[in-house]
Design a protein around this nucleic acid. Structure first.
Lengths: 202, 202
DNA sequence: CGGCTTGCGGAGCGCTGCGCTCCGTTATAG
DNA sequence: CTATAACGGAGCGCAGCGCTCCGCAAGCCG
């Protein structure tokens, strides 16, 4: 694997990295040309690997979910249930997992995406359950609240990365038990949450 | 004030309300036609009152800041410093003050906008100072952190209003003293924050 | 009641900026 | 040196925007 083929391999990595960065900072409707430019690659090279913008988004979604699953599994390896959960949340915000949520409903969900999401959900469920039963996590927060919290903090804060960490630290403190004020309103509905991405094809 | 003039007056209110709703839910680059449609008004009526989209945004910014100032002043009338501050933050998120922040740098800042912002800043500064010295607010958070927090929660949460209230309740709990984890990194820089809207003309 | 005025709705103009294609150019292999 | 594979990026066709313009209806005065 040398010469042109090695360049192609490198280009693919640069493309994925650039796409993630551009989409998370500018929104999913950023022009494809901006991704190519950021990757230092021509439009031709981009479209040879991903036949459409949607295909690129689907690939990013899978990678994003795989990272989230990995972060959750790593969180389970931490002995302290709270540190494990907090580390997972910070990791997700750091690498932008969930930042593709605004795209929900606008792209077709592939079978691969469903599979990875199930693997991630299992680890995350265990991570959160452990934190709750240990008494570190406030009792009235659900796993979907946490998913939405990650989603919310994935949006850039005034374009300055480290300010997001400060706001997230505030929210993490608010997640710890005991709560001083109970959460208002009904908890997010699981069926609604899953249907955001569209119906699963049989 | 009757007949056509009364209709014009009503149309203006409907327009401002619709514009606020559309911009906060769809982003500031939503089409002007969407605002006219939501207000139940023709394009002609909109553009007779506001000669450009920018002029409409400037009007909304002033209204938004006036509401924020009002909410801060009302917060000062509350005896409990913490309830006053929390009420102010919730009010700002409710009516979408600060949701125009993404527009910073893309519209010209009018003299009126500067004046209202100074009035608001004075009340907010006092409200936060009072909460801090009373020991209710964690010590390491600055007024700009709180402004950015409001800004962040002004973005819609998965398109469902009441879910935002849940996430905000978590963050408000995290704002209370004593903090369990200190905020990371340097505090937001005031000069940077003010320059986001562009240089002030003499 | 009828002309005149005022404000109305919305079709469409001109244009920007997008996704994507296509092709001349350049680097590698034999 | 020729053949081949992969490259960069100019530009096509089009969607969707801000804004204008005009035919029409509702209120006002003799």
């Amino acid at each position: 694997m040398r010469g042109r083929q090695a360049e192609a391999r490198r280009n693919d990595l640069k493309l994925l990295e650039a796409a993630m960065e551009v989409f998370t900072t500018q929104g999913f409707d950023a022009p494809v040309s901006a991704i190519a430019k950021r990757a230092g690659v021509g439009m031709g090279s981009l479209y040879r690997r991903y036949r459409t913008k949607e295909e690129l988004l689907q690939r990013l979604a899978v990678i994003s979910m795989e990272r989230a699953a990995g972060a959750a599994e790593e969180g389970l390896r931490e002995q302290d249930p709270w540190l494990g959960l907090a580390g997972y949340i910070r990791a997700c915000v750091d690498f932008g997992s969930g930042s593709l949520a605004p795209v929900a409903g606008t792209i077709v969900v592939t079978e691969e995406m469903w599979q990875v999401s199930e693997r991630a959900d299992a680890a995350i469920g265990e991570l959160i359950g452990r934190a709750r039963t240990s008494g570190a996590l406030r009792a009235d927060v659900t796993d979907l609240d946490i998913a939405l919290l990650i989603e919310q903090f994935n949006r850039p804060v005034a374009g300055v990365p480290h300010l997001r960490d400060r706001l997230l630290a505030i929210a993490l403190d608010g997640l710890r038990a005991p709560e001083t004020t109970p959460l208002p309103g009904p908890a997010p509905d699981r069926q609604w949450y899953e249907s955001r991405w569209g119906e699963r094809l049989p």
